[in-house]
Design a protein around this nucleic acid. Sequence first.
DNA 1: CAAAAAGTGGAGAAAAGTGGGGAAAAGTGG
DNA 2: CCACTTTTCCCCACTTTTCTCCACTTTTTG
Lengths: 146, 146
Amino acid sequence: MGMFNSRYECKVDAKGRLALPAKIKAAIPDSNGDQLILRFGDDGCLALYTQVEFKKLLHQINSLSDRDPIQRRIKRGFFESMTDVELDNAGRFLIPKVFLQRAGIDKDAIILGVGSFIEIWSPEKFEANSINDQDELSSLMDQYLS
Amino acid sequence: MGMFNSRYECKVDAKGRLALPAKIKAAIPDSNGDQLILRFGDDGCLALYTQVEFKKLLHQINSLSDRDPIQRRIKRGFFESMTDVELDNAGRFLIPKVFLQRAGIDKDAIILGVGSFIEIWSPEKFEANSINDQDELSSLMDQYLS
DNA sequence: CAAAAAGTGGAGAAAAGTGGGGAAAAGTGG
DNA sequence: CCACTTTTCCCCACTTTTCTCCACTTTTTG
């Protein structure tokens, strides 16, 4: 269906490589040789996009003006916190050290499929940010969904 | 994808040469023998353009009127602060001393891919100009992107 | 329980990064 | 116009990082 979902617990090996779970890999349109975009995302997690999904984001960024100081800073911030990565033939990719540091990931990581993209969390941050109580989730959904 | 991105920490050697990171080099359409344009850019950084990208900029400059004093000064300033450079076979290029001085670059430099072009910063200026807090970036993006 | 798939780790090869010698070219002064 | 100095450029060599490939372990599935 081309949709990412579920939570997976993964390990980052000594070289900084992360193996995508088979189900996630299967949901990437052309997982062979295709590049993915890794970005420092919201709330301290990393976000992984397919080319197609990323282009939507990129299009918005390119609409910013190079002749406005603040918009230049936004553009720089965006490009600074992204990189493209490629899967090796075992379905792994290298997470640059800077990204691991900023995301607070050491050995363990949580991978979360969020529909059109994938989030990568340090277990601690994930725990702190997620809704643990199902009733709370239901109540919030009642509030925000019509 | 022909897009420049990510931040890299580089060194300028004793001869004033800067080696482009492999990923940046790979994103230059014809990195062999092709000339690049180095310009003193916005906010105190240096900007590196491919021929194609530079032409877009040049086109704007050429639209300025030679019959208006201020526009003449802008035009002169623009051409004064640019030069063309060529990569050696190790993917390095020489940054003229004047450019290093004006940009405040000594030994260390930050290279930033900004989509269609490349910025070169002194670490100090980069630090002072960039958005360090991810939440601040998110908030500004919310504000400026539709 | 067996077979297949997924996950994990590491050695060796390849590529990238770094530095410097010395030739060629440009600039300078008599 | 020639000799000398300085800068630029081309090439080679070494170090470090990255990548590819292979093999082993663990988990899933029929």
